[in-house]
Simulated assay, not measured.
Amino acid sequence: MGRNLRWAVAGLATAAAFAVPVWLCGAVVLPSLLKDAAIRWSLATALGAALASLTVLWGQGFATRGQGTAGQTRSGPSVQATAGRAVAIGGNNSGPLSTGDAPVPAQPTAGGPAPAQPPVPPAPNTVSASGERSIAIGGNNTGPLSTGDQPGGTRP
């Protein structure tokens, strides 16, 4: 459904949410309870306005919500951190980020050390941190970043 059609549906729903309760209360329900037409229609109009305002809130969200492309859902970039102390974030970062300065303990393996695998090239829309102590962010960063490297220091 297109955006203009969504706005039209929201507008029609708002008009109906106002007109139907006003007519029902003013012409059908309240005449037996209130004989004064001014009070009866004022009360009916107030009820219609309250329901229409709730419908406006719904309609605005309905008309402006995002749409996927041809039945597909929207998804963010693929995120992958493959090396030791690597960080990959597929969105925006607003906090401090550090890969540390201490060495990572080696994980024991059953058949000895694993053979080195050549790195796989990243796919489109991919955030990848593949080097040791690397940081990759697929958005904006507002916080401090640190890879743990110290100037003039020894590397573990």
Rank of each mutant, 00 (worst) to 15 (best):
R133L: 06
T55A: 15
S128L: 15
T99P: 00
A81I: 03
L97W: 10
A70H: 14
A63Y: 07
G59T: 11
D101F: 05
G48P: 12
Q60T: 08
W41T: 02
A129I: 03
S134M: 07
P96E: 13
T99C: 14
A70Q: 14
T82L: 11
P113Y: 01
F62W: 15
R40S: 08
S134Q: 05
A88K: 06
A63P: 00
T64R: 15
A116G: 00
I135N: 04
T99S: 05
P115M: 05
F62C: 03
G131K: 11
G112Y: 10
S32Q: 11
V87T: 04
A102D: 01
V28F: 08
T55F: 10
T69Q: 13
T126D: 02
A81Y: 02
A38N: 13
A114S: 15
Q67K: 10
G100I: 12
A110F: 13
A63E: 05
G59D: 13
G59I: 02
P77Y: 05
S42Q: 07
V79A: 12
R40N: 03
P124S: 00
G68H: 02
A38W: 12
R40P: 00
T99K: 03
P105H: 09
A46Q: 09
G59R: 13
T109Q: 10
P113N: 03
L97F: 06
G112T: 04
Q67R: 14
A27I: 07
P108L: 13
I135H: 01
P113G: 10
S78M: 07
A81S: 12
E132A: 15
Q80H: 09
A44G: 07
A49W: 10
T64D: 10
G66K: 14
A83F: 03
Q80G: 06
Q80D: 13
S130R: 14
L33S: 11
E132Y: 04
G100R: 12
W58M: 03
A37G: 04
A52D: 03
Q72D: 09
G100S: 07
V104P: 01
A44C: 09
A52R: 08
P124K: 01
V87F: 13
L57W: 13
N93K: 03
G131Y: 10
A38D: 12
L30K: 00
I135R: 02
L97P: 01
L47T: 15
G91S: 15
L57C: 04
P77I: 07
P113D: 03
I135C: 06
P77V: 13
R65H: 13
V87R: 04
T55W: 11
Q60I: 15
I89T: 07
P122R: 08
A102H: 04
T73E: 12
R40F: 07
T45L: 10
A88D: 01
P77L: 09
A86L: 06
T82W: 03
F62P: 00
A106T: 15
L47Y: 09
P31V: 12
G131R: 13
K35N: 05
P124H: 03
G95L: 06
L34H: 00
V120F: 04
S42P: 10
I39D: 01
G59P: 00
A63W: 10
T109N: 05
K35R: 06
G71R: 02
G112E: 05
T69D: 14
V79P: 05
S130G: 01
I39R: 05
T55K: 11
